[in-house]
Write a protein that binds this DNA or RNA. Structure first.
Length: 529
RNA sequence: GCCCCCAUAGCUUAAUGGAUAAAGCAACUGCCUUCUAAGCAGUUGAUCCAGGUUCGAUUCCUGGUGGGGGUACCA
């Protein structure tokens, strides 16, 4: 992480030589017309805080930093040129598997739970969005060094299982499906697999049968989507270990739970996070989903995670304060639990917005989408948007345009560089060590290399916002620079072995950045297209 | 009613409070005897409205307008 090292040095210099409070000094990518390698608006914001003249502050800062880089002070902006020796050093360091990782992050164990769709039907479009987000974030955090575990919660207890069983039984015996039941076509397919002797099964057995089929198909779709969960957690295992009752006891002990109208309530109205008291045990003696969910999250902490992240669709956002308040009541620090809300995907088909309702069985399944559009295009498409975007997904357009998905633009870089290396090998030009001391990078080479250098900033941005969408944006920009470079410069040049060696090293770094970036969003990097 | 999210080019979306707002699609003009034209170069084109904070606002605050979601002893 070389930029971070430079920033660290810069902070120390600023603080030591001039006593400027420099904790938040950082480099940014300058606009292209400036022609600098790195930029910072530090002087202007620091001047405000210190009550000094911005131009004077910039002058001081420029002086302080001139020992590590060439600095220009342009009307308060600081613009930097890296020394030429930076680049070979960077290329060498970048090859390390742990380039983005930092030791202090390795101590933090993060549990990230996502998708967790009800096991009562196939995964649909929204699950694709949640899966892309959660898995990509897990991959990015893991690249940064965190210990990350991906988890899927299977809600296999309760009334919905009963309804699922009744619905399957109805399908099996040719009876009408109950109004409150599940009407989707998929239960017809499952009914066809039910053995003859099921005529004597109790309804629960139908429920278990359907659920087993549905969960295993969900597992398969996730695998097809390049998402690998470390744990598929069954709600029933909570009850086997009596955890909801223990959670309830813990809340009672803290005097947070009380009885009213025959139900047991959690007193949250005063807590600040939530605004009203919530039921834990219904007057019939049955746990609410909330209590079981609290027990589940408490279990995550007791398994040794310091940080618990949930990814929910926006339709559940009203549940966030309750969950946070509940966990705080149990004594967990508020910052240890984070919920990421992603906005809902609405669907456009044949020019009309389609309402997605499970009961009506009227949705586009994720597996259908994957087989039509492909995992790579699908994941890139979902990941390139910020989770806050209210996406309208035009299914017809997505199918038609899958060839124009920017993912191919990025993947094509990898394929092209692979060809370059094949060509170099054929001409006996591979494996030559570049002599950096005698080579002067031209502007295009420098620009491309700098873009690779910036990658670490992109990852940190993703970490800060807990959003992976900066990665595909970055990759598209890097790909643009590469294709432009490719068009203008020949990499393999038998008449200039030195230039070839340098450019091959550069291409190696670009390919590595593309490969890593794509892998962080679960997309393949083909060698040939 | 109250709460949360959103509003950027014809369309779908980017942009730690910074410099000339960036891509893809669509439209138009050129470029394959060269390491893959799934590419390159170029043209047209945008910050919902009204205030405020700031040296500086697409970004922050207030109020509108329009859209999505939520407001269970459901899961």
């Amino acid at each position: 992480m070389l930029i971070r090292n430079l920033e660290e040095q810069a902070r120390k210099l600023l603080q030591k030589d001039f006593g400027i409070e420099a904790e938040n000094f950082s480099f940014t990518e300058p606009p292209p017309h400036i022609g600098a390698d790195l930029a910072s608006s530090f002087a202007m914001s620091a001047a405000k805080r210190a009550g000094k003249n911005p131009v004077e502050t910039a002058k001081l800062a420029a002086g302080a930093l001139s020992s590590i880089m060439d600095v220009q002070n342009t009307g308060g902006f600081l613009n930097f040129k890296l020394k030429d020796s930076f680049f070979p050093e960077f290329l060498d360091a970048f090859k390390s598997e742990k380039y983005f990782s930092s030791p202090e992050k390795e101590k933090t164990k993060i549990n990230i739970e996502f998708v967790s769709a009800n096991p009562t039907g196939p995964l649909h479009l929204a699950s694709g969005s949640g899966a892309s987000l959660g898995d990509s974030l897990a991959r990015i955090l893991s690249a940064l060094g965190y210990g990350v575990s991906r988890e899927y919660y299977i809600n296999n207890v309760g009334n919905q299982v009963r309804m699922l069983g009744l619905s399957l039984k109805a399908r099996f015996s040719g009876q009408p499906v109950p109004d409150e039941g599940y009407h989707g076509e998929y239960l017809k397919d499952i009914a066809a697999e039910v053995p003859e002797e099921a005529a004597s099964w109790p309804p629960e057995k139908f429920g278990a049968f359907a659920m087993e089929k549905i969960v295993s198909s969900q597992k398969k779709v996730m695998a097809d989507f390049n998402v690998d969960f470390d744990l598929w957690f069954e709600e029933s295992s909570l009850h086997e270990r009596n955890l909801p009752a223990k959670t309830l006891a813990a809340l009672k002990e803290k005097n947070m739970a009380y009885e009213k109208d025959g139900a047991i309530w959690l007193g949250l109205a005063e807590s600040g996070s939530d605004d009203k008291d919530r039921v834990l045990v219904k007057s019939g003696g049955i746990n609410t989903y909330f209590l079981n969910d609290l027990a589940y999250h408490a279990d995550k902490f007791s398994r040794g995670f310091n940080k618990v992240i949930d990814i929910w669709g926006a339709d559940h956002h009203g549940y966030v304060p309750r969950m946070k308040a509940g966990l705080e009541a149990l004594g967990y620090p508020p910052e240890a639990f984070t919920v990421i809300i992603h906005q809902l995907v609405s669907l456009k088909k044949g020019g009309e917005t389609v309402k997605m309702s499970k009961r009506a069985g009227e949705f586009v399944t994720l597996s259908e989408l994957i087989s039509e559009v492909g995992t790579d295009a699908c994941r890139f498409f979902f990941t390139i948007r910020s989770p806050k975007t209210h996406l309208v997904f035009d299914i017809d357009l997505a199918k038609k345009k899958s060839n124009e998905n920017p993912v191919f633009y990025v993947q094509y870089v990898h394929a092209r560089i692979n060809s370059i290396f094949e060509n170099a090998a054929q001409k006996g030009l591979s494996g030559i060590k570049p002599d950096w001391a005698s080579y002067r990078l031209n502007d295009d080479e420098r620009k491309l290399l700098l873009k690779v250098v910036y990658m670490e900033k992109v990852l940190l941005q993703c970490e800060k916002e807990l959003s992976p969408h900066h990665i595909p944006t970055y990759l598209t920009e890097l790909a643009g620079l590469f294709h432009s470079f490719y068009d203008r410069h020949k990499v393999v040049d038998e008449t200039n072995k030195q230039a070839s060696a340098v450019r091959l090293a550069l291409m190696g770094a670009v390919a590595l950045a593309i490969r890593r970036g794509l892998s962080m969003i679960g997309v393949s990097a083909p060698e040939r297209m």
